[in-house]
Design a binder for these strands. Structure first.
Length: 795
DNA sequence: GTAGGGTTAG
């Protein structure tokens, strides 16, 4: 197009040259009036040709009018203006500035800077307007290197004391993160105006340095609205919403930015209702709303799932004509889908004129939020363009809906398509590995992270620790922890929970002390870990102490999980009455898990009276739950009350309660093998049987007697032993002995809790076969080594 | 020509 116009220009010029007789005159006032009427490139080119022929183009001011027009006209692109600039013989700084500014307006700082270089090589000398433009260009490119070079030019050309130049320099250094230089320019500057103060304040605000920002703000000769607005926003970001509000209340001139900053402060601190209240208040002052405040308020509605308020705001957006902002469209899509109204979101999406990648991605996440995983996948597959976030949204969506195999599959597909995942994607993938116990996959992702230079940030690190802990890889988990530069509370939590889960109770509680010493504030989850640690080791007194200090020192109100831990801790220690009293004292209604803990304790400690009561209650509450029937039946069985056992089994049959079969998994050469109790379906069952016989022989030599107390069937002792003998974990151990070699531990995952007998057997096997055995049951880990278990037989 | 508010996708 540009070339076409230039050809057109040449044609016009030569035609005018061929008719020297009709050489029209042109002067400044004619030029102005003709430019004013100029509506298309042809007219413009005629003017240009005329100016060239008449030599009027040599008039620098006239030439600048021409160029300026071209940069503002919609029918020329800047390549043309640039060509035009090179046609001008007597150009000056104003002309160069005009084009450089035009490049900035069109978001092209690189062209702006390139032009500056050309300018330096030309006859034109930069003026006081030139440097602010190019400094801004390097700021937009976050290029401190370029900015510094221009800073040198500023000195060279003697603009050291131009306040515009200095203020732009402060801004550039602050944007590039060089606070020190920003401050240096500020301090050296002899004239400071409100923009200088606002700029240096902005530097500290951007860096999140509240203390320094407050100091600057207080030193300011006059605290203007712009500065106060930034301070409100900064307070909000630093969780100092009260300070923000105080400043807000003290202001006498508030504009839309002030209100937005305050509303967003509330929002960032989770005070969504307060944010909405502020918005209502703002409207009563008849302040004109804009798209920024609307986006903020819609986000509050999403968080509150306040669809009614969201609809009102939607109406307002349409009424004031802001509905063509794509950001607002997206915020609306998000709001509706967060509130569960996927149809409204879908409608907006389908009717939307201005959609972008975020709109598409928001729809995927909308479907996922509404639990429509398949629809999300269909939408994902149909997308014209997928970016990392599309992939990551879908991948984490699968993970959040417990579809872990799909998570890994989609991640693999991403690899096949050679799309580089980002940290967030990896977090979902690692957590899926943890949930699937897919240790090999998880290790692969860890290696992948290292190989591809991903930063192990807090999230990735914490997830890796969690995965390794859940897979029983303590050392690697701790290695990751030690290598991390930054640790959040959740990171400490992962270690505390993980160590406890793996039976290292002492170490777990030590980590908690270390956390306190490091000044990291524990949260609810930390205490779930700490109390869980106490529970695993039966540390009743410590447990009570932590339970109290959690409330008194850290002001954490115990939740149902904390109560559950305490009930379990007390119950397992045989303090059945105290456990039951604690349940009675709970402010919230106890859940099934809490009663279940008590029931388990009753089974362990023969608390038949409480057990029967609790068991019956639980069965009433959850008639389909197999575990409670089994526990109660075990309680009856241990007392030889076979009639009650039979009755219960009849009831189970009648209610079609299916007892979850014990299932153990073991990974060998990257393949996961599954064994059910009494399972004879494995292709290597013959060898497994032989190994089981060998195991039995050695066990006998060790003087082992089968522990049949967990077998709740009214059958002969010998038969009980046979049932025990084929428990899924024993099959898996036998297979592990055949298929893996020392010193690699035999790693087994079990869906239920390990029974007394298998526990005893695993201990002996670990000694007589000189093999480490790691069993992860649904509660915790058991590391068997040299005849001892990490749980110290307390579980 | 320089300075302020933001979220919407994981």
């Amino acid at each position: 197009m540009t070339l076409g116009r230039i050809h057109l220009y040449s044609a016009l010029k030569s035609s005018l040259n061929r008719n020297p007789g009709i050489k029209p005159t042109i002067n400044l006032s004619i030029l102005e009036s003709r430019l004013q009427r100029c509506r298309n490139p042809r007219e413009f080119l005629q003017i240009h040709a005329q100016m060239t022929i008449t030599g009027f183009i040599k008039d620098t001011f006239a030439a600048s009018r021409l160029l300026s027009f071209s940069t503002n006209s919609f029918f020329f692109d800047l390549d043309y203006s640039r060509w035009l600039l090179h046609q001008i013989e007597n150009s000056n700084a104003f002309i160069w500035n005009t084009l450089m500014r035009a490049y900035m307006q069109r978001n092209s700082p690189q062209n702006c800077l390139h032009l500056y270089k050309l300018m330096l090589r030309s006859d034109s000398v930069p003026d006081n307007y030139t440097h602010p433009i190019v400094i801004q260009a390097s700021a937009i490119r976050f290029s401190e290197f370029e900015g510094k070079q221009i800073h040198c030019h500023v000195s060279k050309f003697g603009f050291d004391s131009d306040i515009y130049v200095l203020n732009t320099l402060i801004n550039m250094y602050s944007v590039c993160g060089n606070l020190r230089h920003a401050r240096l320019v500020f301090d050296k500057s002899l004239i400071l105006d409100s923009v200088s103060w606002n700029s240096i304040l902005a530097a500290y605000v951007q860096a999140g340095d509240v203390e320094e920002a407050v100091q600057i703000f207080n030193q300011m000769p006059e605290q203007n609205t712009i500065a106060a607005n930034s301070m409100i926003a900064l307070y909000g970001k630093c969780n100092r919403v009260d300070d923000a509000r105080m400043l807000f209340d003290g202001m006498d001139a508030r504009d839309i930015v002030t209100w937005t900053a305050m509303i967003s402060s509330y929002e960032q601190n989770g005070l969504f209702a307060e944010a909405l209240k502020m918005f209502t208040q703002m409207n009563s002052y008849e302040i004109l709303v804009d798209e920024v405040v609307m986006v903020t308020v819609l986000s509050a509605c999403s968080q509150l799932e306040a669809v009614k308020e969201g609809e009102v705001i939607h109406g307002l957006i349409v009424k004031v004509g802001l509905d063509s902002y794509v950001n607002l469209q997206n915020a609306l899509i998000h709001m509706y889908s967060s509130c569960g109204n996927i149809n409204a979101a879908r409608q907006l999406f389908e009717l939307g004129d201005y959609l972008d990648q975020i709109s598409w991605n928001s729809m995927i996440s909308g479907y996922l939020k509404c639990g429509l995983v398949e629809e999300a996948k269909e939408f994902f597959d149909a997308m014209p363009q997928k970016d990392v976030i599309s992939w990551s949204t879908m991948i984490s969506g699968y993970a959040q809906h417990d579809q872990f195999s799909e998570t890994l599959e989609l991640f693999n597909e991403m690899q096949v398509r050679a799309i580089r995942p980002d940290e967030t994607t990896l977090v979902s993938v690692i957590s899926a590995c943890a949930r699937l116990y897919a240790l090999e996959q998880g290790k692969w992702v860890h290696a992948y992270i290292r190989k591809n230079d991903f930063r192990i940030n807090v999230f990735i690190g914490t997830t890796l620790i969690d995965m390794y802990m859940k897979c029983g890889y303590l050392e690697t988990a701790l290695e990751v922890f030690n290598e991390m530069e930054k640790r959040a509370t959740s990171t400490w939590n992962a270690v505390i929970l993980g160590l406890a889960m793996n039976g290292l109770v002492k170490e777990s509680l030590e980590k908690f002390s270390e956390m306190e010493r490091c000044g990291v504030v524990p949260n609810e989850i930390t205490f779930v870990g700490v109390l869980g640690a106490c529970r695993h080791a039966g540390l009743v007194d410590e447990g009570r102490r932590y339970f109290n200090s959690m409330q008194q020192i850290y002001k954490i109100i115990p939740n149902i999980k904390h109560y559950g831990c305490m009930v379990d801790l007390l119950g397992r220690a045989g303090l059945l009455n105290e456990a039951e009293e604690l349940i009675e004292s709970m402010p919230m209604s106890p859940d099934v898990a809490t009663w279940g803990a008590l029931l388990g304790a009753c089974k362990k400690h023969g608390g038949t009276e409480i057990g029967e009561r609790v068991g019956k209650k639980l069965i009433e509450l959850e008639p389909q739950h197999d575990g409670f029937h089994v526990l109660l039946s075990n309680i009856y069985a241990s007392k030889g009350r076979w009639d009650d056992v039979m009755e219960l089994r009849g009831m189970m049959k009648q209610r079609r309660v299916i007892k979850t079969p014990g299932c153990s998994m073991i990974e060998s050469n990257g393949v996961v093998h599954e064994f059910l109790a009494g399972d004879g379906s494995h292709p290597q069952i013959k060898e497994i049987d032989e190994m089981l016989d060998e195991m039995a022989r050695r066990l006998k030599m060790e003087g082992y007697r089968p522990d049949t107390t967990d077998v709740a069937f009214d059958i002969e002792e010998e038969e009980k032993e046979t049932t025990l003998y084929r428990h899924s974990e024993k099959l898996a151990i036998a297979f592990g002995l055949i298929s893996t070699c020392p010193p690699i531990p035999i790693r087994i995952m079990k869906n239920l809790r390990i029974c007394n007998d298998c526990h005893a057997v695993a201990k002996i096997i670990s000694r007589t076969f000189q093999r480490e055995i790691v069993v992860r049951d649904r509660q915790r880990f058991h590391h068997f080594k040299q005849g001892v278990c990490s749980c110290s037989d307390y579980w």
